[in-house]
C-alpha cells in the first residue's frame, strides 16, 4: 500500500483499523519505558524533585506545536488539492493540540508553584503557550460554527495558515515583552546544560507522547470519516423521504 492509496477515505479506514491496535501497544510500551526512566532519573541539583514535572511539560509543549504543524500541512492540502482527508486531519488535530497545550499550561503552573511561589508567572514561554491555546480554541470555535464540513475546513485552513505565520511573531514579541518587563528571566530552562541522565528519559517521554498523538490522531480521523459518512447517509435519507 503506497501513501497515495491512503488518501482514499475508505482505504484510510482499513489502514486505521489495522494499524491502531499496534500503535496503541507501542505507545503503551514507550510510556512504560519512559515513565520508568523518568522515575529513576536523578533530581536536578537546583530544582529538586520538581524536575519530574518536566517529563510531562516539555513533551506536551512539543505536541502543542506539532499539532499546529499538522494542521498547517493539512490546511495546504485543503486549499491546494481540496482533499477531504486533509479536512479530516485538520479537524481531528485541533482538539488534540488544544488538550496538550492545556496540559502544558497546567503542568507549567504546577511546576511554577514550588519554583516561583506562584501558579502563574507571565513568563515568556508560558505566555506564548497561552496565546497558542487561545488560537486553538478559536479554530475549534470556527469548526463548530460552520455547518457544512468542507466550507468549515476551508475557513479553518486559512485561519490556521495565518496563525502559522503569526505564531513565530507572537513568540518573538512575547519574548521581547518579557525581557522588557522582567529584566532577567525568572526561570531559564536552556540556560544550564542538561545532563544525559535527565535528557534521555525526556527524549523517551517525547517519543511516547508523539506516539500517543499519532494514535489519537488516526483514531480521531477514523471517527471523523465515519461521522461524515453518517451525515451523507442521513442527507440521502432525508432526500429520499421528501
Amino acid at each position: 500500500m503506497s501513501l497515495t492509496d491512503l488518501a482514499n477515505p475508505s482505504r484510510f479506514l482499513k489502514f486505521a483499523n489495522r494499524v491502531l491496535p499496534w500503535l496503541g501497544g507501542v505507545t503503551v510500551i514507550a510510556f512504560a519505558i519512559g515513565l520508568n526512566q523518568a522515575m529513576g532519573a536523578p533530581d536536578d541539583y537546583q530544582q529538586g524533585a520538581t524536575v519530574k514535572i518536566m517529563y510531562l511539560h516539555v513533551p506536551s509543549a512539543w505536541l502543542g506545536m506539532l499539532a499546529w504543524g499538522v494542521m498547517s500541512i493539512a490546511a495546504l492540502g485543503t486549499l491546494v488539492w481540496r482533499h477531504p482527508l486533509a479536512d479530516v486531519a485538520a479537524k481531528s488535530a485541533a482538539p488534540l493540540g488544544a488538550a496538550f497545550t492545556l496540559l502544558c499550561l497546567v503542568t507549567g503552573a504546577l511546576w511554577g508553584r514550588p519554583e516561583w511561589g506562584t501558579y502563574w508567572v507571565w513568563d515568556a514561554r508560558l505566555t506564548s503557550e497561552l496565546v497558542l491555546f487561545l488560537l486553538y480554541l478559536g479554530v475549534i470555535a470556527l469548526w463548530r460554527t460552520v455547518e457544512d464540513p468542507s466550507r468549515a475546513a476551508r475557513a479553518a485552513a486559512i485561519l490556521t495558515l495565518v496563525g502559522a505565520v503569526d505564531l513565530p511573531i507572537i513568540k518573538f514579541s512575547v519574548d521581547w515583552w518579557n525581557t522588557l518587563h522582567q529584566g532577567e528571566s525568572v526561570f531559564r530552562f536552556g540556560g544550564s546544560t542538561i545532563y544525559p541522565t535527565i535528557l534521555v528519559p525526556l527524549l523517551v517521554m517525547a517519543v511516547a507522547f508523539t506516539l500517543l498523538f499519532v494514535t489519537l490522531q488516526i483514531a480521531a480521523m477514523r471517527n471523523e470519516i465515519l461521522r461524515r459518512r453518517v451525515r451523507t447517509l442521513r442527507l440521502m435519507q432525508a432526500q429520499a423521504a421528501s
Partner: peptide, 17 residues
C-alpha cells in the same frame, strides 16, 4: 463574537509593540 475570538490573539504583537 467569533471574529473577536479569532482575531484578538493574532493582534498580540501589535498590542505589545
Amino acid at each position: 463574537l467569533l471574529l473577536a475570538v479569532l482575531v484578538l490573539p493574532l493582534t498580540v504583537p501589535v498590542l505589545i509593540f
